[in-house]
Amino acid sequence: MRPSSLQAFGVLLLLSAACSERQPPPPAGPPPDAKRVNPATVGRVSGKVVFEGAAPGNAQIKMASDPVCLRENKDAVSVETIKVSGGGLENVFVYVKDGLANYYFETPSAPAKLDQKGCRYMPHVFGLRVGQPLEIINSDPTLHNVHALPDVNQEFNFGQAIQGMKNTKTFTAREVMVPFKCDVHGWMSAYAGVLDHPYFAVTANAGTFEIKDVPPGTYVVEAWHEKLGVRTHSVTIGDKESKDLNFTFNVQ
């Protein structure tokens, strides 16, 4: 190999190295001053995410580019961007953003699940823990690629060509939110909130949510929506106390 060819090869290698990202370190064990939650004193935060005003219509998905998706969705399907039911907003990720400084929580070994069914991600918004396995399943008889686009964690993109394929991934750092997309089917998107504690929920029907077993303290609770942004409230929970917390979103 001549020197010029070697140089060109070296440049390519450097470019490759420059493009790669460093994986954040895995979660460490409990710090020396870590506190454990006392189950006898825990409380609860629940409430509703209200959507104010008239709900805008979501765009209809055109699935003609994949006959399998078309067959799986005989009725018209819309994107899930703004899903309003009973005056409440669904698919809002509500979580304790701040206030749990010294608490330590074991990482669950049971995997969180993200399914690809009917050429949609199910669930569309979900939460999981740092270090918790995420099982990604392809239930469709067509190909999907699973492309996670985090800012803090390691990006990944892999294919699932066969129905029933499963892959497991983990995130090593806290990040709200990690977007997922399928580049084969441009309408498929999902969002994962990766947290180092268990105090999160996703709003269901009528925009309701419930966060259980919260230790006494003062917390910043945030509600995140993929399109409408975030709303933040502060809440103080006493021993065995339950608090109601409502968030309001609107299209400005």
Partner: peptide, 8 residues
């Protein structure tokens, strides 16, 4: 079409 990574 944003398909650059559809074949991973």
């Amino acid at each position: 079409t944003g398909s650059g990574l559809s074949v991973p």
